[in-house]
């Protein structure tokens, strides 16, 4: 359609519209997301199909297709890493959830000095994980570590905490629980205190015992938040690296090597970049899968209510 010659000539708008301004402000974030998330992820997928090393630029990358995935998934040693990681995750998250809920149960009530006690409980979570690892490494030292000194004083004898695989697992679980139980306490306390007081009071008036109130009222009403705490702890425990690095170095042998530790080793000690990329993709699939199952169950539970 021809333009009416009587109209004034079209000019670029002198002022930015709200829509354009929003777009301008979002653009940097989009750019950052593309550069920091999309590009690395696509690169990761591409690298996982190659055999190459970043440290040996002279050697040309070789296309492997799914070769790296096949190599990883048929390697019995990697399955051992998954089994060990699973054992660690189940143990540490169970301890953290049970302890966290128990302590939160007592901390939900108002008492004198509660805020100070609560802050003290939160302190371990604020520390750097590698520092926590070295701290516990020295505390678990078989000869002069405080744990063995106390055990010997109590007549229990000394234990080789970090030199025997099963003991080392327990030692790392203790360190991890010490550091991350506060996170569960934080969420559980918030959940417990968020329940309207009248609901619990009504149960008590109806003659319910404290245990009945806790298991039938408090816990079910806190379940969504506790499930989020559980999900976050599961994901974090699955990725655990620092504590094993500092406390056991993956040993004795390879018996305390988690999948994350194996990934770090393949990527930055061996510099098998293609193979490490494939393992990273596998870990990502597991973590995203785990998260999706949880989110779905949470959503269903919410809909049912």
């Amino acid at each position: 359609m021809a333009r009416d010659p009587g109209l004034p000539p079209r000019r670029l708008p002198r002022e930015l519209s709200d829509r354009m301004l929003c777009g301008l402000f979002v653009l940097p974030t989009l750019g950052v997301l593309l550069v920091m998330v999309a590009y690395p992820f696509l690169s990761l997928l591409y690298y996982s199909t190659l055999s190459f090393s970043l440290l040996r630029p002279g050697q040309a990358p070789r296309a492997m297709g799914f070769g790296n995935y096949t190599m990883l998934l048929t390697d019995p040693a990697l399955w051992e890493r998954f089994v060990f990681t699973g054992k660690f995750v189940v143990l540490t998250v169970t301890v953290q959830m049970l302890l966290g809920i128990l302590i939160a149960y007592f901390l939900q009530r108002d008492f004198r000095g509660r805020d100070i006690v609560f802050t003290l409980f939160m302190l371990p979570m604020m520390l750097c994980p590698i520092v926590v690892g070295f701290l516990w490494r020295y505390m678990f030292n078989s000869e002069w570590g405080i744990i063995n000194v106390m055990m010997a004083a109590a007549g229990l004898g000394k234990l080789d905490w970090l030199g025997i695989a099963d003991n080392a697992l327990v030692a790392v679980v203790i360190a991890d629980a010490w550091m991350w139980t506060p996170f569960v306490i934080l969420l559980a306390t918030a959940a417990f205190r968020g329940i309207p007081v009248n609901i619990r009071e009504a149960a008590r008036i109806d003659g319910a015992s404290p245990a009945f109130v806790f298991f039938r009222v408090t816990l079910p009403l806190s379940a969504p938040i506790l499930a989020i705490a559980l999900l976050l702890r599961l994901i974090d425990a699955f990725k655990q690296y620092d504590l094993f690095f500092a406390m056991t170095g993956g040993g004795p042998g390879n018996e305390t090597m988690t999948v994350s530790f194996e990934l770090g080793k393949i990527a930055f000690r061996y510099f098998y970049t293609g193979l490490a990329s494939a393992l990273a993709v596998l870990m990502l699939v597991i973590i995203v899968g785990l998260a999706m199952v949880f989110v779905r169950r949470l959503t269903l539970a919410a809909e049912e209510r």
Binding site: S142, E143, K158, D160, L162, T248
Partner: peptide, 8 residues
């Protein structure tokens, strides 16, 4: 002949 746990 080392202290217990010296293996690590």
């Amino acid at each position: 002949f080392g202290p217990p746990g010296s293996g690590n």
